[in-house]
């Protein structure tokens, strides 16, 4: 095995964190775990958790109610949309675009929440092209 590539060398740079020099007031409050920093963190956590719970509620009120609906109204099992039985159409096809839509909305809102948080603590998030 004489034709092995040369061994890899780990190349490191100076830590990015200290490169920026002056740090914003908001981030120092959080790092020092002051009451104000605590308020910043709690507001971020509450926003993100509320957002997650809203998405889960939307999921529960649509997909989650289907078994109950078919239990309470058994006649739904005979309903057809064109050639497809209703249940097969809803669960076999239409569910998936709905899940993707919920996920897409969640990502938009959660990244907006993070931008608001960065603004609040006085730091700027880099815009990333999609």
């Amino acid at each position: 095995m004489s034709d092995q590539p040369p061994p890899r060398v780990r190349v490191t740079g100076p830590p990015r964190r200290r490169a920026s020099g002056v740090r914003s007031a908001g981030t120092r409050e959080i790092d020092a775990e002051t009451a104000l920093g605590e308020v910043f963190m709690r507001s971020l956590l509450r926003e993100q958790l509320l957002l997650a719970l809203r998405v889960l509620a939307a999921l529960a009120l649509t997909l989650g109610l289907l078994p109950l609906a078919f239990h309470l109204f058994p006649a739904l099992g005979d309903v057809r949309v064109g050639p497809f039985p209703l249940a097969w159409l809803l669960l076999g096809a239409l569910t998936y675009p709905w899940l993707v839509l919920l996920g897409w909305l969640y990502i938009r809102r959660s990244e907006a929440n993070e931008r608001d948080f960065a603004d609040l603590v006085g730091s700027v998030l880099p815009e990333e092209p999609r």
């Binding site: 981030t27 959080i30 790092d31 971020l44 956590l45 960065a118 730091s123 998030l125 880099p126």
Partner: peptide, 17 residues
């Protein structure tokens, strides 16, 4: 626990410990 919450929920680009 509080410090760990900061790590879990804040975006990486915000300059925090």
């Amino acid at each position: 626990a509080g410090r760990f919450m900061v790590r879990l929920h804040t975006p990486e680009a915000v300059d925090l410990q």
